[in-house]
């Protein structure tokens, strides 16, 4: 027999996304407590359920971050192995010029998608891992920050799956091209990477179910750097973006120089740097890289 308090607590737990075994456990614990002390000061059921949601939401967000990062590392290693073993399946991502026909069009499109998606996956994986690193001992995260962590994890894993699937697609599309790598091993390795990425999905799903409400800011890319962020970057996420874009441009230019094609390297560097800034501008607020509120505070 359950008391009106337990019934209402059960409903409130469901409302904040706590279901299944955990729901039953909390209700049973509170039931046990009320049997020991019917006058216990447990507070309003809604407030108690929200406290649980804040605790569990934070814990699940951190678990999702670890799961996503681990799966992205596995997928990254597999992708690297594919790239080394095939001598660069993604070469067709480079603008070859001229009309594109049949499998070449598909291969080029797939390789382009792979390059973009894998860069997004890498960025999200690094960002989610960094935020976890600095916040792993925090018991209750602000709800906005927990949502950003989960969102980054979802985008990272989603981009990883897209990127790996695109690699396999490019390999299939190029299988008849002379000198192209055999599609079988690439598909096999891609499948391993996709399985690794899919392994993180239950953690991501569990994290999205709970609805925490704890107050506080989501943070920005400067918070991702934690204690590594120099004072000049505090509250200046756009400076971080600019520095990263410049570093990317420089790396691409250096790579071009090493490949005896400095002009192409510089051009790619500028394009990649601008793409980085464009991504920061458009996806930044959604992925917790910067916020308009933060800019107002900084200003």
């Amino acid at each position: 027999m359950t008391s009106p308090y337990q019934q209402q607590l059960g409903r409130e737990l469901t409302a904040v996304g706590i279901r299944g075994a955990l729901h039953r456990r909390i209700v049973a614990e509170i039931d046990d407590h009320l049997q020991c002390d019917p006058d216990a000061l447990l507070g309003e059921p809604r407030a108690l359920a929200q406290q649980f949601a804040d605790v569990i939401g934070s814990a699940r967000a951190k678990t999702a971050a670890v799961a996503a990062f681990a799966s992205l590392v596995v997928a990254g290693v597999v992708t690297l192995v594919i790239a080394v073993a095939t001598g660069g399946t993604l070469r067709s991502a480079q603008p070859a010029g001229g009309p594109l026909h049949g499998p070449t069009t598909l291969a080029t499109a797939a390789a382009t998608v792979a390059v973009i998606a894998l860069q997004v996956a890498l960025a999200c994986g690094l960002l989610v891992a960094l935020r976890w690193l600095w916040r792993r001992h925090t018991g209750v995260l602000p709800a906005a920050e927990a949502r950003v962590i989960v969102r980054r994890a979802i985008v990272g894993v989603g981009a990883g799956i897209t990127g790996v699937a695109a690699i396999a697609t490019a390999a299939v599309a190029e299988r008849h091209v002379p000198g192209a790598p055999s599609a079988g091993p690439v598909i096999g390795a891609s499948a391993v990477a996709v399985v690794a990425l899919l392994a993180s999905v239950p953690s991501l799903r569990a994290a999205t179910r709970v609805r925490p409400l704890a107050e506080g800011p989501a943070g920005d890319v400067v918070d991702d750097l934690g204690p590594l962020a120099p004072a000049a970057l505090k509250n200046r996420p756009w400076r971080v973006a600019l520095l990263v874009a410049m570093a990317i441009a420089l790396l691409a230019t250096v790579a071009g120089v090493l490949q005896a094609d400095p002009y192409d390297g510089a051009a790619r560097g500028i394009v990649d740097g601008l793409a980085c800034l464009a991504g920061f501008a458009t996806l930044g607020p959604w992925l917790g890289l910067w916020s308009r509120r933060g800019r107002e505070l900084a200003g």
């Binding site: 447990l42 108690l48 649980f52 018991g139």
Partner: peptide, 16 residues
């Protein structure tokens, strides 16, 4: 302590 604060804390410590 208000008992309501202890149970979420127990879950938090377990999660940690």
């Amino acid at each position: 302590l208000p008992e309501g604060t202890v149970y979420p804390a127990l879950h938090r410590l377990e999660a940690a």
